[in-house]
Design a protein around this nucleic acid. Structure first.
Lengths: 178, 178
DNA sequence: ATGGACATGTAAGCCGTTACATGATTTG
DNA sequence: CAAATCATGTAACGGCTTACATGTCCAT
């Protein structure tokens, strides 16, 4: 129900092929919304039928034509309509928390290894986000209109990763204390 | 692929009917894993076929028999097997982040209202978690084996809510500064 | 020549959500 | 007397994942 809107947001920033979009959902946008290329192609076709995007074919030698999708006025209107709706609660699904909760019935050494691996991932992601922040938004008090959204999302990523990292560190301290 | 395991963890703590489990997934466990009763009943049936749980029928007057599900040795073995597997990356789906990222194309007043509402929810949940923490785990340095898992999960909830709250507050400050 | 990036999709199956269905007991 | 709680499910639909399918160009 909302991949459409994630795609509209992305296309509003810059027109793209399905392939481009799929890569974005592996990178920047993928930090807070995941989608595979199969999903993207299917949803794009639906969005085109609804008139939220139109498509320009760009012929290429040796490869399928690029189908460059551009957001339409109807697409922008749909984005505004959607944004006025209440935002549902985030759907949480944390296997990590399930495993922690099941501690007495779980392979403890394996769990420790998982926590360490996860700690390292959070640390690496956090570092990457902070570098990105320093490079892209050196002065957060002087953001133009177009930069504000991406800045706020990146801040959210940093706060989320920092919290995840701290959770892992505290967990390790408690588990190793035995 | 993992609702089964969340159910196994929950049943390892205490045997339950499908109804009981559905309520747990609305409360304690629901903080990090959501499931509806329809889903729970379906998965429980499958788990029974696999021998991970067995069922004791308890007759009742005027109501359907209670089907009390108890984890079996095979269920505990499955839990241990699962816990040694690598934990996949958490699936993120944040409509909130999508809306922020789309700022220039979004209904700004509505977004502000959403952010305020979300800030208040995070604040309320955080307060509830902290009360729960103070009541249930007054001395985190003296946790027994059974309490450690639930304690760590609650800590995760607190850290997550605090991060969400801070994100909302920073976002409001930036949005209101215009 | 092997593998990765580019570029598009189809198909099968599982998972999850929403709606429907039943019916007694307790609480306000 | 209405609504919530207890207690079980079925059915339809849609979304998402995984596997399959094709073919070129470029770098190693």
């Amino acid at each position: 129900m909302a991949l459409e809107h994630a795609i509209l947001v992305s296309l509003a920033e810059r027109s793209a092929t399905g392939y481009d979009l799929a890569r974005r959902f592996d990178a920047s946008i993928g930090h807070f919304w995941k989608a595979t290329h199969q999903q993207v192609y299917k949803v794009l076709a639906r969005m085109q039928e609804q008139g939220w995007v139109d498509v320009e074919l760009v012929a290429q030698a040796g490869r399928p034509d690029r189908k460059v999708h551009r957001i339409t006025d109807a697409g922008r209107a749909e984005l505004r309509r959607w944004s006025a709706e209440p935002i549902g609660p985030e759907v949480l699904r944390s296997s990590f928390a399930v495993a922690l909760r099941g501690l007495p019935n779980v392979d403890r050494d394996a769990l420790l290894a998982h926590v360490r691996a996860r700690r390292d991932e959070h640390a690496a992601t956090l570092e990457a986000y902070e570098k990105d922040m320093a490079r892209t938004f050196p002065d957060p008090d002087a953001l133009d209109e177009a930069a504000l959204g991406p800045y706020l999302v990146l801040r959210g990523g940093i706060l989320t990763e920092a919290a995840g990292l701290q959770w892992c560190e505290e967990t390790l301290a408690r588990l190793e204390a035995r």
